[in-house]
Simulated scan of single mutants.
Amino acid sequence: MKPMLEVTDLAVSYGDGGRTTTVLDGLSLTVGTDEVLCLLGPSGCGKSTLLRCLAGLRRPDRGEVRLRGEVVDGVPEGLAVVFQDYGRSLMPWASVARNVDFGLSRALDRAERRARTDEALAAVGLADVARQRPGRLSGGMQQRVAIARALAARPTLLLMDEPFASVDALTRADLEDLLLRVRRDYGVTVLLVTHDIDESVYLGDRVVVLSPRPARLVADLAVDLPRERDQIATRGSDAFVRLRTLAAEHLRAT
């Protein structure tokens, strides 16, 4: 089976006042179908730039991105993105349901859009707040709205850019477990960017460690933990401690 996502020899540089900064340099990786790959690296290493290339929002200077075997040249179908700054990604004047519906194709009829919106909100536990506006919800609930909007589009690939970094620890744990349920129930492939070592091991089937800028692949670690995970039991296991220590060693060695 071909990988869901293939990144080959990707390079990106930015120019500023006659100076050039290389952000990505010869980066290659793959993401398998129905896999959660966590991209771990120091702040400013180029993780978000990589996501923009994967989403078709930034053309690389060299290399290519393929989604389901097709070269990404513009925003591809079957892709959804969830950002860290959930507040800015939602329309504060519109209801929760309208925010979710907004991401759906206008080619769908009204009944189908309503069905998808209701299903997605139920999946993230927000069916009872569909008529409320996002500003009346907690930060964690707002991020659930953003995840519901992504799910309603029924993506094959979900890109997440540090999606839980702006919430408290308990809410973060709830959202992490929500993501694992979404992957299980929807069979979506996920690439999640984070700088949190424990989160990467808890959520991932693989953890890819990147170097400081310009980002290069330092390590590609298989997470040999059961897919069904628990915030206390999993994090307390010897296998988890071993893997997070290994990831930390690779990250520190950069």
Rank of each mutant, 00 (worst) to 15 (best):
V82I: 10
G69K: 11
V182L: 10
R116D: 05
V208C: 13
R144D: 06
V81Y: 13
A153M: 14
V12C: 11
R181I: 01
G15W: 06
H195V: 09
L27V: 08
V209S: 00
H250P: 00
P60N: 03
K47E: 09
R62V: 03
E70H: 14
A120Q: 05
R136Q: 13
P226T: 05
Q84T: 10
D177F: 06
V82E: 01
P212C: 14
A239M: 04
A215T: 05
V241K: 08
D25I: 07
R62Q: 13
A148H: 10
A148V: 12
D161C: 11
R244C: 11
V71L: 14
L50E: 12
R52P: 00
S28P: 00
R59S: 15
R252G: 01
G44Q: 04
V223R: 14
L37T: 14
V223A: 14
H250F: 03
T22Q: 13
L225Y: 01
I147H: 00
E199V: 09
D196C: 02
T245R: 15
D34E: 15
L157M: 03
T254K: 00
S28E: 04
G46C: 03
R184C: 02
E77R: 15
L10A: 12
A247D: 07
G236F: 11
V124L: 13
L108E: 11
A247T: 05
V167S: 02
A248W: 10
G26L: 10
R235G: 14
L246N: 01
T234F: 06
V23H: 08
L24W: 00
D230Q: 06
G87S: 15
Q231L: 12
L179S: 10
D238T: 12
D101P: 00
V188E: 11
K47Y: 03
L243C: 03
L10S: 10
M1Q: 12
E162C: 04
A55C: 05
D25T: 08
V190A: 01
L51W: 01
L54H: 03
L243Q: 03
L5S: 13
R19C: 06
L57W: 11
V71C: 08
M141K: 05
A80R: 09
K2S: 14
R58L: 15
V100H: 01
E176A: 13
R98F: 07
T20S: 05
Q231W: 04
V201M: 12
W93Y: 10
I147D: 03
R172W: 06
A55N: 07
L29F: 15
V31L: 12
L57C: 08
V71T: 15
L137P: 00
V12D: 08
T117C: 15
R114L: 03
W93Q: 09
G140K: 09
L5A: 13
L157K: 02
